[in-house]
Each structure stands twice: as C-alpha cells, then as structure tokens.
Design a binder for these strands. Structure first.
Lengths: 111, 111
DNA sequence: TTGATGTATACTGAATATGGTATACACTGA
DNA sequence: TCAGTGTATACCATATTCAGTATACATCAA
C-alpha cells in the first residue's frame, strides 16, 4: 500500500499500526476494503455528475447529510449494504451474468 | 417475481405481505436483494466445489457453522460485508477496472 | 463582511448484526 | 438400529451500524 492510500484510509477513520499491519490483512479483507473504497468514490462521482448535494442524496436514501458524507469516505461504520444502496441510488447498476457467473457493479457515465 | 423465488426468500427469513409489496420495492432494494442472493448462492457453490463443510468455512471466517448456514441463505441479519468476506474466502474474486470504471464480482470455477 | 449553500465532525439512543452455544434434523455407512 | 457427519433453527449477550441532531468548516456571491 502506498502512503497516499493509507493516508486516505486513515482520514476515513481506518486504523493501522503500520504498513505491515495492512500487508497482514487477509485477502478477503483487502478485497472488501478495496471494493468499499471504489464504491464510495463512485457514489461521489455519480452524485456530482447528477448535480445533487449530499442533502439531496440523503433525502433519496432516507437518511441524513452527515451520513452521506460518511458513505462517501467509506467510513468503517458504513456497511457495504448502505454503500450499495447509495451507489444504486445515484445510477450505479448491478449486472448478474450466468455463464460465467459473475456480478458486475457498473458505473453509469463512467469516467 | 415468481413464486419460487419468493418462496426461497421467505424461507431465508424475508417477509412479504404479498407480491405487490415486492414490486413496490425501490430499485435499489431490488438490486441489493438480488446481489445478496446471488452472492449467497455463489458461496455455497464454491464451498461445495472446494469440498469444505460449513464448519470448515466457519473456521476460515472465524465464525460458527450456524452463521455460515445463515450466510448461504442470505438471511436478513447477514450483512453484505459478511457475504462478501465469505464469498472471497471460497475463491470469489473482485476485479476493479478503470475504463470504463466498474466492479466485477467474479466467481472462480463458474458453473 | 455577511449570508447562503455545501460538506465534515461529534455525539447519542435505538436498531441491527455478530459470535457463541445448544439442539434439532437429515443422511449415510456399519 | 446406531454412530458419525453435515446442515438448520433458536436463543442470548455483545458489538456494530444507524438516524437524528448540533455544530464546525469551506466556499462563494452580494
């Protein structure tokens, strides 16, 4: 992990003793963390593309502006479920294919 | 929603007043529920392909066999986060592409 | 500077998810 | 039938996530 990423994660509320701790994360944890961060970034990008404020999105999600702020930095107390809902609420799509079976979390209006 | 799917969901612990209630779900909720169910199915299929018992997987996830049973039916009190960890623990992979930006939740050894 | 708008941080009580345990059920082979 | 293995259901105590609120900070226009 580069310093930049670690700094961003710590800003988001994640705690690391040092880089070795991160390297010691299980593969599952790393994949989950990556997916969370990607989805959070996507939420912000899509929201801004729609010219919605955090307050606007909060209304759609039936939550508060402060929670949207947390969602967009993938804070530790934001579940993947909530990230997912926010993501789809701003136009993110999920495609489930069968052969080969896979799930794609697609961003509309990709960069 | 067909009766079969609804039956499966109810068996998993989800509650529906009637089909209209389900149709009344927001798009986000439907996408999330679908993704959860797909991931749960994937966990079971991959686990069995690896010849692991629920107890074996529970050890890897540092949880209990009963919880794995819940994970595999995408019970309402199982978070997407936990589903995700289980999924990756049995070989599921996440690929994040940049152009176009999308996330794929890929099943290894797909059917 | 002031007010308006958008975003971030901190705190709380309530709701939900989690691990752990006990136990029931299903299937198989001896 | 019985023992062994794998899976499902039920319950509880604890931990985590949540909405709601207050408030701080940032930017911009008048």
């Amino acid at each position: 992990m580069d310093a930049k990423k670690r700094k961003a994660l710590e800003a988001a509320g994640w705690k690391f003793g040092d880089a070795a701790d991160f390297l010691g994360m299980s593969d599952e944890e790393k994949q989950l963390l990556d997916a969370r961060v990607e989805m959070a970034i996507a939420v912000r990008r899509l929201r801004e593309a729609m010219n919605l404020s955090q307050t606007d999105l909060a209304l759609r999600l039936k939550t508060s502006q402060p929670r949207v702020a947390k969602i967009e930095r993938a804070a530790p107390d934001v579940s993947f479920d909530q990230l997912f809902r926010a993501y789809t609420a701003v136009g993110g799509r999920v495609v489930v294919e069968s052969k080969p079976r896979r799930m794609k979390f697609e961003l509309q209006g990709a960069s």
